Simulated scan of single mutants.
Amino acid sequence: MSEPKNDWRSDLKIGVLKTPYRHFTLIAEGEIVDPSKWEEALQTGSAVMSMKVWATTEEEAFDMIEVIGEQVGFDVTGRVELYNTEPEEPPRQNPHGYDIGFESYVED
């Protein structure tokens, strides 16, 4: 008989799994400046980047979307929205971002 799968969400809620991090989802306005760093299918130009993060503070989460954005060819140039959200991945040893997405748009 196989062992039941560890339910990290329940462990997190009841305090069995402890982390110094909080979970956020961020949405940032900006520009895709180098699509080759992420996906060739992306086009240079105006876009919105979304990302989920485990971070210590809101300020760290804001820093993470800017730094990770640069690493994947995206410059944050406008508004950044931050939401406290339920995680889809468990916390790790260090702050991290995941589930990065882009939506291009044409400005009128």
Rank of each mutant, 00 (worst) to 15 (best):
E39R: 15
P20T: 10
S36E: 15
I27G: 09
F24R: 07
D11Y: 00
E40D: 15
E29K: 12
E31V: 06
E40R: 13
V16H: 10
A28C: 10
E39G: 03
P35T: 04
K13R: 12
E29F: 07
E40M: 06
E29P: 01
E29V: 11
K18S: 04
V16M: 12
D11G: 03
R22N: 12
R22M: 02
I14H: 07
G30C: 12
G30V: 13
I14Y: 02
T19A: 10
G15I: 03
K37R: 14
V33Q: 02
I32Q: 00
A28L: 06
T19W: 13
I14D: 10
K13Q: 03
E31C: 00
P20D: 07
D11P: 01
P35D: 08
R22F: 09
L17Q: 03
F24E: 10
T19C: 07
P35E: 02
K13I: 05
P20G: 02
T25D: 08
W38Q: 08
A28Q: 05
L12I: 00
L26Q: 04
V16G: 02
H23T: 00
D34N: 15
T25E: 15
I27D: 01
K18A: 06
E40K: 15
D34Q: 08
W38M: 04
E40F: 11
L12T: 03
K37Y: 02
K18P: 01
H23E: 03
P20E: 06
F24H: 08
V33R: 04
D34K: 11
E39W: 09
P35S: 05
I32A: 04
I14N: 14
P35L: 00
L17P: 00
R22V: 08
L12C: 00
E29Y: 11
G15L: 07
A28H: 06
S36P: 09
I32K: 02
K37A: 12
E29A: 10
D34S: 14
D11T: 01
S36H: 13
E39P: 01
E39I: 08
V33A: 02
E31M: 10
L17A: 01
T19M: 13
S36D: 15
P20A: 04
S36R: 14
V33H: 01
W38F: 15
H23R: 07
W38D: 07
L12A: 11
K37M: 13
Y21P: 07
H23V: 07
E29Q: 12
T25Y: 13
G15K: 10
I32V: 15
R22K: 15
E39V: 02
E40S: 15
V33I: 06
V16Y: 11
T19G: 13
W38K: 10
I14W: 06
I14V: 14
V33L: 04
G30I: 13
